[in-house]
Design a protein around this nucleic acid. Sequence first.
RNA 1: GGAGAGGUGGCUGAGCGGUUGAAAGCGCCUGCCUCGAAAGCAGGUGACGGGGUUCCCUCGUUCGUGGGUUCAAAUCCCACCCUCUCCGCCA
Length: 422
Amino acid sequence: MLSIELIRQQPDFVKAGIASKNEGPEIVDEILLLDRQRRELLQEADALKHHRNEASERIAALKRDHQDATDAIAAMKDVGSQIGHLDELTKTVDGRLHDLLLRIPNLPHASVPVGRNENDNDVVFTWGDKRTFSFVPRPHWELGESLGIIDSAAGAKITGSRFYVLRGLGAKLERSLISWMLDVHVQEEGYTEILPPYLVNRDSMTGTGQLPKFAEDSYHTDTDDLFLDPTAEVPVTNLLRDEIIQEGRLPIKYVAYTACFRKEAGAAGKDTRGIIRVHQFNKVEMVKVVRPEESYHELDLLLDNAEGILRRLDLPYHRSRMCTGDLGFAAAMKYDPEVWMPGQDRYVEISSCSNFEDFQARRANIRYRTADGKLSFVHTLNGSGLAVGRTMAAILENYQEEDGTVRIPDVLVPYMGTDTIR
RNA sequence: GGAGAGGUGGCUGAGCGGUUGAAAGCGCCUGCCUCGAAAGCAGGUGACGGGGUUCCCUCGUUCGUGGGUUCAAAUCCCACCCUCUCCGCCA
């Protein structure tokens, strides 16, 4: 969330920032109004409480001296109820204010290009040579079906649409990719591996920004109010919720594999074929918690770590810079590496690397203590390294042969125990 | 799921209705001592939110969370959450 001080002091700056994210300015005015009400109520109640505290001290003194205190007690009789009334009002206003603060998006970094939606994003970097095919490359869903490794019908049968089953070397390829990606990030880039719960509580979902605004995107268990994590970002970032980190521990670099669950509300009709947009998918996610002054440098490193996976797999990609309108709710800056899919003749998002600055840290109350003892909010970042199912799709499409077999990228052969899926 | 124990400041841990934001110890910071350090001695040391004449003063809140009782709650009552031990069930 944004600091209330910033909203108070520079409301027009905040309005302009959220407008560039396609959010109306009314929320800022509503916040300012409630903030004013809150402070007025607080002053009134504090004055009464001060009065009560002084009276209590006098009563205590009288009691100690074994003197009669009935008059003093009688005089305070209804002050308590006045305070109770004011506290109740404050609580109502406070709750409403807090809810609005949780619903206001992060402001974009000043350097982010202003734009309305994904059409205004820029490709800022391109890597790799697209392979020239002597035949018409097929999309991964056709390859997956003919090889018998991706079974969408089975997924629909046992669960529903947008679920799929992997079989044989398909299942093994998914598992190999997870292990290999984790190994690269841990062994070569110094991340610490985490295997968190896939179910998270309401506080965790609020801490990273999925709640309260995007509840309809998440799977939820009615009986105990838990959510299926939409990304490992949620459990992993929340490892540090309400923690005070000694500065020397920063930067903290975590990498986690989890299954991810998304309702994909509003995606009806989009990417209906294949395994690009599904309700359950595997992802390896990197999460960083860093000192504020280093967060943009760390974003560059994070991007390089994500794209390094694509380079090791020799998959052509480009990097898309998100405009303000496509940053999402919590990010101040975001880049999406997109992989080339020759079977579909398009680039597909395969990672998303964001700097949230202190937006998540404020919500989740993640702070660090500097050498001179001061407390500040950290900056948080995360990026997929990578979405596993989409990586498998990209491998199938880029490494396919005319006879329908698929070659295994060199780095994965030791994990797969074979160099071809046939 | 059942029974029991417990949740207090950075940590350990007292307090169990009335100057208790909270003893004591540890840790940390400052000063004295020292060539320097340790030891010793003295002092200081939480967070959050208001207000102000804004390197400081002041008020309020804060002892797992939320309610309740009371002039007054860390302290009494209720509910919930979490941790530990034992039992049961179980991949």
